[in-house]
Structure formats: structure tokens, C-alpha cells
Write a protein that binds this DNA or RNA. Sequence first.
DNA 1: GTTCCCATGTAACCCGTTACATGATTTT
DNA 2: AAAATCATGTAACGGGTTACATGGGAAC
Lengths: 185, 185
Amino acid sequence: MSDLPTTSFAVLGLIASGPISRYELWQQAERSIANFWTIAKSQVYGELERLEKLGYVSGADVRQKGKPDKKTYRITPEGTAALRTWLAEPAQEQDRIRSTLLVKLFFGNLMPDTALRDHLDQYRAKAEARRAQLEPVVQMLTGMKNAEHMRACALLGLRINEAMVSWADEVTKDLFAVRSRKKGR
Amino acid sequence: MSDLPTTSFAVLGLIASGPISRYELWQQAERSIANFWTIAKSQVYGELERLEKLGYVSGADVRQKGKPDKKTYRITPEGTAALRTWLAEPAQEQDRIRSTLLVKLFFGNLMPDTALRDHLDQYRAKAEARRAQLEPVVQMLTGMKNAEHMRACALLGLRINEAMVSWADEVTKDLFAVRSRKKGR
DNA sequence: GTTCCCATGTAACCCGTTACATGATTTT
DNA sequence: AAAATCATGTAACGGGTTACATGGGAAC
């Protein structure tokens, strides 16, 4: 029962909605799950080979004119079964956030005021951008049939980015209040 | 100007507060920055070798009785300079979140009700646990001198986990409202 | 007096990212 | 007509995780 990494099942899940080429699958991953699980293009190719060896997917070469030839994959019954099993298991891995900017902020006492402000501004701007990008997505998915789960995922992204924006505003105020006091002293 | 990964500077930043052994540094990383930047124990050892070759830190063997001998490191002036430079640069990498649970939720239409509920419950429980763990930390850091930046980092963790908890409550309600409608039909 | 945890460390492996390649189509 | 982008793909490297090792205290 070779237990595969999450990325494998993410690929498998994306194939489950219907046959798709490797390149399209990668694009789809970028558009859909990338907010909480990024997959590199080259990973897609590797994972599909592995999944095919396991009998979870089957590939077929497709000729094209005007574009390079491609290879499309479809899920097998075994693949569907494996996916369902995995989905029903509780997630063992903890969520993780990686933020270089927070690392810098953590050592903020070694940083001049201007740099600190720039960092916070940048953080706020990025969070606001993602928030603004997700808002219409959530709107569009609201009420759409069979899209409830996708909507829930997008909604979490929205909420987290909202929290980040208001956090940035709050700590910007706080930190510069402290710093001006120190300076004035 | 060999530009190093974030992990290197995280290690360097932790050493900047004073000499520390490799094992202690790892523990410290677990306690402090792990919420937004995890570092494996073995990475600490590797990074320190690299940093020493660059002249950013210098190590010394220390004999101990009752415990295994250890090696402690201190930052050099060059290391301090490099750290300050890095801190002042804008962060190039985007924040990323990795959540296996959200991947599962994304494919939730292939999942039975009970499993979905379990997943959401588990997600809420973990977020609430982290929230509860961070709350006293933020309290403790509030008002403590020179701890403003650490407090800001912890506060973001708190806020994000708060958002996660209320999100879990919201979508649990929504998703099961939808499912019971479908079932009743 | 075993059994578990702590403090310290090493080794191997694999996931994931980045760089490279290439011909067709679109843009400037 | 040159330059950028798209659609498709491969190769290589390095970061990060997991597993292993070990001797002394602590716990039961």
C-alpha cells in the first residue's frame, strides 16, 4: 500500500474530473489548488509516470498540428479507488506556512525604520492583491452547483488574506508608535 | 555575493542574539520561527558549516560531562553585516501555504459526508489548538521591551488561526446545509 | 531495573524548484 | 522582422524531511 505524497493524489484528483494532458493538468493546478498546494510543471510529469506504473492512470499520445504533440491521461478504476481511500483518511501532515517576510520581521530589531516600513507595506500589498483576486472567485462559485468545496477553499484564502491585511495595518501602527517613542527619548 | 536561501539567514539571525550550540539553535528555531519557517535539525548542522566557510559564524567545540560534547557558534562582524544587508532587501519569495487537508476538501465531492465532517472538525481543532497556544504568547510579549517584532509575528499566527476557526465553523454549516438539501431531494 | 526521553549528531533519500530546450503563434 | 508568449517537454541541483545512531538521565 505504497503511500504516496500529497502531490500524487492532487494530480490524481485533477485527473478524476476527466481526461487531460500533462501540460493542461499543470495549468489547471496553477489555477485551482495552487493557493494551498503548489505543484511544479516537472513534478506533474514525474508523478504521472509513477501513477501509471501503479495502474492508477493510463496515458495516450496525441498528435497535434501547429502545436507540439502531447500526452493525455485518464484515471483508472484502481486510481479512483485509491483516491477515494486517501480522501477518507485523516490528513496526517500539519498545515505549514512559509514566509520569508515574516522571518525578516522577526529579526526586525536589526533593521532600520524605512526597511521595516517597506516590508510591511509590501506584505500588505501582496495580501490585498490576493484578497482582491479571490473575492470575485468566491462570488462566482457561490451558488454554483457542485462547486461548494472549491468555494470553501477559495473562501479560506480570502479570509486568511483579509486577516493578513488588517494585521499589517495594526502592527504598522503599533511598531511605529513604539519606534517614535524610542527615537523621541 | 553568493545569495543564500532564507534558511541560512534564519540560522544566522538566531545566532545573532548570542553564542548558541547547534542543538540549542534547532530547539530555538522550533520554539520561535517554526510557525512561519520550519528548519529541520539536520539543516541547522549543514547551514552552520556553510556559514562558517563564508566566515559569517565561527564554531568552537565544548566538552560536557553527563551530556555529549557539543559545538557552539557565534556570529562574526561579517555575518552581522550580511544579515543586516539581507534584512534590508525586499523579500523576493511569495508566502506559501501547504495544506493537505485543503487538498482533500477541494476534492470533497468524492468524499462521504462523515469523512468531510471529520476533516473539518480536525481542521478546526488544530487551528483552535494553535490559536490557544499563541494567545498567551502574544499576551506575554505585549509590552515586553524589544519584543515588538516577535509579538507581531505571533500575532499574525493568532489572527490567521482565528480566521481558520471561524472559517471552519462557517463552511461546516454551509456544506451540510447543501448536503442535506441534496439528500432530501 | 527496564523503559522512555533528552541531548547530541549523521546519513540518505526524495520532493520541489529552477534552468534549459524548441518550434509555432501572436504581438509590437 | 524581431521579440515575446504559448504549448510542450527534460535535466539537474539543492533544500528539506525522515530515518538512524548513541549514551546518559529520568521516570515508572
